[in-house]
């Protein structure tokens, strides 16, 4: 049998929900433990070994200047780097600040703003270092995580589907909430992976798995307008958990008055 893979899970700006999906594997963790060595995982153990790592899973966005340096170190120490979740993959909900004056927030909230070292923008890991695979979701899906882990163990490139949520809805026999109820469902432009969870309970998808591989968010925005959404509401649909992902930004762009602060300065 091949040598045990050295696995690390690193945390950046995030809520820890994606790391929790590792721990939620429960029984499968024992199977996993026979094949991998978890050498760095702050959420789970106080053992924090240095690299090199065979595979690093990265949760969280790059949000402080320390993050900027640390992500370079993680990359240098890892043979393979896989991002987990909306924060690491797209900048996360905290990327909402990218459209506002970050300095103003800091001054308004903190008594001693000079102690705060956050960057003006929250960005995905891929904006800084090479990423080998991206697991989407807020949080990531356990079944997908398991599949990626078994691909990694089989030494093949992790397979992560890029098709729309609609495909999963139709296979599952869910009835379309956009067509039957006129709900502003993001499913057509959102990536599958959640098991079409929201539509299964007759509610509209809000895009927590990020953009599908090649959808058309602009066209969906026009459909939302025809369904009666205002320009503001359309912007808010796209600018949410994965709002900083390029395809979601494109979806919001046609309707937004406010451009991201940094881009305005360009």
């Amino acid at each position: 049998m091949a040598q045990k893979l050295r696995i690390a899970v690193h945390k950046f700006a995030s809520c820890d929900g994606c790391q929790m999906q590792f721990l939620n594997l429960e029984q499968d963790l024992l199977t996993l433990a026979r094949q991998v060595e978890i050498v760095h995982f702050a959420e789970a153990t106080s053992v924090m070994q240095q690299g090199p790592y065979d595979v690093s899973f990265v949760e969280g966005s790059i949000s402080t200047s320390t993050d900027l340096q640390r992500i370079q170190q993680v990359r240098a120490a890892s043979r393979m780097l896989i991002t987990i979740g909306a924060c690491a993959t797209a900048g996360g909900l905290q990327a909402l600040r990218n459209w506002k004056d970050h300095g103003e927030f800091v001054r308004a909230i903190y008594a001693r703003p000079e102690y705060i070292d956050s960057l003006a923008q929250s960005t995905p890991v891929s904006a800084h270092v090479k990423v080998d695979a991206e697991l989407w979701g807020c949080p990531i899906d356990q079944q997908q995580l398991k599949r990626v882990l078994s691909d990694v163990l089989a030494r093949i490139t992790p397979r992560i589907p890029g098709e729309s949520v609609c495909m999963e809805c139709k296979r599952a026999g869910n009835v379309c909430v956009l067509v039957t109820k006129g709900e502003p469902c993001l499913g057509p432009v959102t990536r599958t992976g959640c098991g079409a969870l929201c539509p299964r309970y007759e509610r509209d998808c809000y895009g927590c798995f990020g953009p599908q591989e090649d959808g058309n968010a602009r066209a969906l925005g026009r459909r939302f307008q025809a369904l009666g959404l205002s320009a503001d509401e359309i912007v808010r649909r796209f600018r949410f958990i994965n709002g900083w992902a390029p395809a979601m930004r494109a979806g919001a762009q046609a309707w937004e008055k406010q451009k991201p602060i940094i881009e305005n300065m360009d």
């Binding site: 094949q35 163990l153 609609c166 139709k170 432009v189 058309n216």
Partner: peptide, 24 residues
């Protein structure tokens, strides 16, 4: 939208993908 709904509901579309799902 390139969502694929038309092909999913079409009674004649037969395209499929095949994958292997390996145990841990």
């Amino acid at each position: 939208l390139s969502c694929g709904n038309c092909t999913m509901v079409c009674p004649t579309c037969f395209c499929h993908s095949e994958t292997d799902v390996t145990s841990l």
